[in-house]
Each structure stands twice: as C-alpha cells, then as structure tokens.
Design a protein around this nucleic acid. Structure first.
Lengths: 205, 205
DNA sequence: CCCGTTGTTGTACGATCGTCCAACAAGCAA
DNA sequence: TTGCTTGTTGGACGATCGTACAACAACGGG
C-alpha cells in the first residue's frame, strides 16, 4: 500500500528524525488543535499522535503521560496569549491608560475569546484540584499575569497599596467576561465586554 | 458471601424498588459526589453506580448517557446554589442594597466557593462547546441568574437601560472571583473577594 | 563505505470505558 | 396466596484507553 517500493528508485525516508525540543513543540501544538476540535474528552494519546503525524508511542516518549502533555500545552497556549496581549499593549503607544485599555481589550479579541481555546483551559482546570503540581503551575501563571496587571495599574497612578486588590478585581472581571463570551457567544458581544471593562477601569483610576 | 442465606431465616430483599423520580435524584446526587471526589475524569458510569449503591445498568436506564447525567447534575447543583443564594438574600432583610450585597457575598461562602463544587461546573463546561443542547441549557441557566441580578439592581435604583449591562458586569466579576477562589484558594480570601465585589457595586449605585 | 547512536515505529497488553439486554425479584393487585 | 408489572440486576460485548517494549531506521562520525 505504500506509495513507493522499497526495492526501486531513490529511498524515501519513512520518517524524519527531529530534535527533542522541536518534537516536543509539535506534540504540544497537536494537542492544542485536538483540544480545540474534540474538547477535553477527545484528547487521547492516539488522537494527538495522529494530529501530529507520529506514532502513539512517541507521546509517551516525550511526556510522562497525558496530564503532563496537557499541562505543557496549557503553559504554551498561555504564553502565546500573553505574547499577543503584550503586543497589543505595546502597539497602544506610551499613554499608560491606553496601554491598560489595550491589555483588557486584547482579551476579548476573536483569537483569544475563542470557544475552541477554552477547551485547553477546561482540560487544564480539570486537573488543578486533584494534582498539586498542576495547582502550583496554575498559581504561578496566575500570579505572573496579575503582576503585569499591577504594573500597568501602577503606571496609571494606582497607589501601591491598592494595586494587588485592583489587579485581582480587574483580572476577575476580565476572566469572567471572557469565560461567558466563550460559553455563550451570542449573549453579549466582545465590544460590550470591552466597554464594561473600560468603564470599570474608569472607577479605579 | 452474602450476609444472609437464601434458604434460612426471614427473606431480606436484595434491593428496594424506588419511584423513578427518587432514583433519578439519587443518581444525580451520587454523580455530584463522584465529580467532587474524583473530578470530571473519574465520573464513569460504574463509579457513579457504586456511589449510589446500585448496579451500573441502572444509570443507562434513567439517563440516555453520561452526558445527560452530567447535564442533569449541573442543573440540580445550580438549583441548590441558587436556593442558598436566595435564602441569603431573604435573610438580609428588605434593604435593597443589603439584599444585593447578600447575593454577592453568598457566592463566596465556603459551601459555594468550593473546589469540589467546581468539578461539576468543569465537567459541564467541557460539554458546552460540542453539544448544542448543553449550550442551550447553559444559556438558559445563565440568563435566569442574570435576570435575578437585574431585579436586585433595579431595586437599588439602577435605571432599566443600564440593568442588562451592569448585571453582565457583576455576574462576570463574581464568577471570575469565584473561579479563582476555587482554583487558587490560597491566593486571596473570600472576605477579600467580597470586599472587591461590594466596592464594585458602590460604583454602580 | 560501514557502524553506532538514538529518535521513531508499531504492536501487544491489561484495564476500563459506555452500552445493551435477558433474567430476576420486589411490591402491588386480585 | 397467586400472578403481573416493572424496577433492578449483573454480566457480556466491542471499542478505546494509557502504557510499555523490542525492533527498526535515519543520520552523523569513523
């Protein structure tokens, strides 16, 4: 059934070796695509291997198990989201308030407030309660995100003693709007969510 | 191995028949306990049947599948949460603002901001994207919750044209705080969450 | 050219999954 | 008591799961 005969013509490799880091990344991106397409329930070793174009055994070779792959995928997707947000913030110029607005509005952009992206979060959240290592990873990524928000708030003149509380508040409001935007896309629009968030920022600054 | 011999003494029934509604409820409550203990990944038909003290076949007899049982469990748990919130609201007396505060604070009570309770939401959310019927159920429960919030806001003097937007905002803030309270219980306290939410309400009224 | 390293394959394995259904028995009516 | 209704059992079934491992082959150094 193979497209080429092993006994005639130039030998076409059945697979290509890759550096461990490149293969790890390919598996992570395949996992993200499977989570987006099939949801948390469909993210099996075999489905991810097919998506990545490799054999099932390779997943076990690079990750201790499905949970580790999901955790790595969450970290990678969140990194990319933070990258997109930082890019939006920097594109907003130097006005502190404009940068803060950009931070908030970026969370509601179509590429981020995406139901398919939510699947990665849900798969990760489902592991937080039971696995202490996953909980620690969540704490770390959450406080990292909050720290960047505190800095933006500080630039807007929010006094230091209020930065922590206000960052928690803004983060919660944005996440709550983002979550509902993913779960019920027809209920309210991204523009509406942005207006709500901006209005809340007005009360803090 | 049975505790009694089928050939001696009074006959002890091997099981008791129950009315369909009672059995449905028992299975739903067993499903909620399994979700709390094992998370979404461990909520199998067999585990739920063991928890309910029935045979595995009974689950299929009352529900078309695991997904239907999870959806029914979500509806039931949300009903109980709404009941607890309504109770807190009514216990707050007649002052509209006190009732609104009670609504918000109840969401952060230990029984509701509970990581084990979050497992039910996560199991349900993981089905929203793929299953239109589940998405419709979520829309319905979300708008119901928002309608009660709109009424409370109206009692506090929020004009009608702002009720929808403010209810979306309060709901998002409370849900975001609740979610983070469940995922990272050590990051901030329920009192802090309540203070943040109350401060936000101050800006709306 | 050949050889060793090692990334990769493919499969076998046992466990567990959801579903199904014929047989059983609890409880009510007669 | 007897018979009927039907809630309930418990195992069979095929599919799919995660994991492990021996064999294979790509590729660089000799």
């Amino acid at each position: 059934m193979k497209a080429h005969s092993p006994h005639s013509g130039p030998h076409q490799p059945a697979f290509r070796r890759q550096e461990p880091d490149a293969r790890r990344l390919a598996l992570i991106e395949a996992c993200a695509r499977v989570l987006a397409r099939l949801g948390a329930a469909g993210a099996s070793v075999r489905a991810i291997a097919v998506e990545a174009g490799v054999s099932p055994g390779l997943v076990s070779h690079y990750f201790s198990g499905i949970e580790a792959l999901v955790a790595a995928t969450y970290a990678h997707v969140e990194d990319k989201v933070n990258e997109a947000i930082d890019e939006a913030v920097n594109a907003a110029g130097q006005n502190p308030r404009a940068r803060l607005d950009a931070f908030v509005m970026a969370s509601f952009a179509p590429a981020i407030a995406d139901p398919q992206l939510l699947a990665t979060w849900i798969a990760f959240w489902s592991l937080v309660t039971a696995r202490p290592a996953i909980a620690a990873q969540h704490d770390e990524q959450y406080s990292g995100s909050r720290a960047r928000l505190e800095a933006l708030l500080g630039d807007c003149g929010v006094p230091a003693e209020r930065q922590r509380r206000d960052a928690i508040a803004v983060s919660a409001l944005v996440d709550g709007l983002w979550l509902e935007l993913c779960l019920s896309p027809g209920c309210f629009s991204a523009e509406e969510a942005g207006a709500i968030a901006r209005r809340f920022l007005d009360t803090l600054i």
